[in-house]
Simulated assay, not measured.
Amino acid sequence: TQTVISTKSETKTVFAPLTVVCDGHFSSLRSKLSQATPEHPSHFVGLILRGAPSDLLPNGSHGHVVLGDPSPVLFYPISSSEVRCLVDIPSSVKMPSVAKGEMAKYVLEKIVPQVPQQLQSHLIKAVEDGQFRSMPNKTMAAKPARTPGAVLLGDAFNMRHPLTGGGMTVALNDIATFQSMLSPLPDFTDPVKTGAKLDEFYRHRTRPALTINTLANALYAVFCSSGDSSMEEMRQACFEYLKLGGGYARGPIALLSGLDPNPLNLVSHFFSVAVFGVGRLMVPLPTPERIFKGGNILAGACKIIFPIVKGEGFTRMFFPAWLRTKLGII
């Protein structure tokens, strides 16, 4: 049921056998259909740098992540003459005021010295132009619930940190899965049959979506500067791991892009990075201090990944759809 109020203050109630709720990031209907609660890990503050991406960026056709302090900074081309910069401001940092000039000061003093030199003058110019745009970043694990006649989709249903740009991949995958599951139905007037197909949608969208969600949130946690030397080592290990190339790079990229939806591969690569970081510490000599720090790296990796997996749902992530169907789990 949908109530529509026109500009003439006339109220009209519309009925449909199935209502698809996809009112986005700031959904006003989410609470009626799900028990999930969004979390706010950070804000993105956006700026536009003017110039050809090939002149501004080390690689003009690629996105770039600067592992800054306190959190990552993103640069990526959006046209032949513009590059977008997204400065991540974690929730642990008080949001600087644009009106009071605090944001400009923050970017100039805190961020500019950390970015590649070829970008610094362009970033300073963008700050001087003062065209700041900000948005809250939200994360929210999917909590599917059976609601006769309604289904949640998109950011209203499930969000991950936008650091990896995985939201659109999840959305397109959800659309394809939704269409595939519901297309055999002639219509949606039979609530039992429609409900069964919606259950199938929830079961089949889970693994690719949760793999992307988990990786995005885990990478954000790793890439943020924590002041913990063990986690700093983990962050550097992640960078060096990807630099190895071959399967060490292809595997994580396949996970990020949704080409590999297997959560076991995600966990494997994540802990491979941690073990790789421990191995780096043991060279040239495994002193007691280095062994202790290595243990902290493994413990830190567990503290990052396990709560995320728990939030997303262990059974939804690791149990195949056919098994969850038998168990009656969506």
Rank of each mutant, 00 (worst) to 15 (best):
F188Y: 15
T325Q: 14
L163S: 06
E200D: 15
T189C: 10
A145I: 02
P186H: 09
D190L: 07
Y248C: 05
R235S: 12
E128G: 06
S31K: 09
F271S: 01
S28E: 15
S134T: 03
A254C: 08
V151Q: 09
V275I: 15
H161Y: 03
G154D: 04
P252M: 05
V66F: 00
K303E: 09
V127W: 06
Q35F: 02
D129C: 05
R207E: 11
V283S: 02
G295Q: 13
R50W: 11
I212Y: 09
V66W: 00
L264A: 03
R160I: 14
I212W: 07
T164M: 09
E82A: 10
L153Q: 08
A16E: 13
R207P: 09
S91R: 01
P38W: 10
C224G: 06
T315C: 07
I253R: 12
V283K: 08
A176V: 06
T11Y: 00
M282K: 00
F314N: 01
P58W: 05
M181E: 15
A156R: 08
V151E: 06
L185S: 09
K303A: 02
V4L: 13
F270K: 00
F132S: 05
L259S: 09
L182N: 02
K326N: 09
A196W: 02
E312K: 07
V14Y: 11
T37K: 14
L215E: 09
L33R: 01
K303T: 02
S134L: 14
N173T: 01
T315A: 08
K100W: 03
P77V: 03
L86W: 11
F132L: 05
A196T: 04
S91E: 04
P41A: 13
H43P: 00
G63V: 10
A301K: 05
N262M: 11
Q114N: 02
V14H: 03
K138L: 10
K197H: 11
L298N: 13
P38E: 01
G328T: 03
L152A: 07
A99N: 08
V20Q: 06
T177Y: 06
A254T: 10
M103C: 10
F292N: 14
C238Q: 12
A301P: 06
G149A: 13
I89H: 04
T189G: 15
A156D: 05
A221K: 10
G300N: 03
L323C: 06
G24N: 10
S92L: 03
P288A: 00
P77R: 07
F270T: 04
P320L: 15
P208E: 06
A150K: 14
L86C: 14
E10G: 08
I175E: 12
G101E: 03
V98M: 12
F271L: 14
P162L: 14
Y202K: 10
H269Q: 13
S9D: 14
C85M: 14
I291T: 03
Q35I: 00
V20A: 04
H40G: 03
A218R: 04
M317V: 11
C22E: 12
E233A: 15
L266Q: 05
K105I: 06
L264I: 00
R146K: 03
V66M: 06
N137V: 13
L57C: 04
Q2V: 12
H25Y: 15
P288C: 04
E289W: 02
L56F: 11
M95T: 10
S226I: 00
D187S: 15
L29N: 13
S6N: 15
E102T: 09
A237F: 13
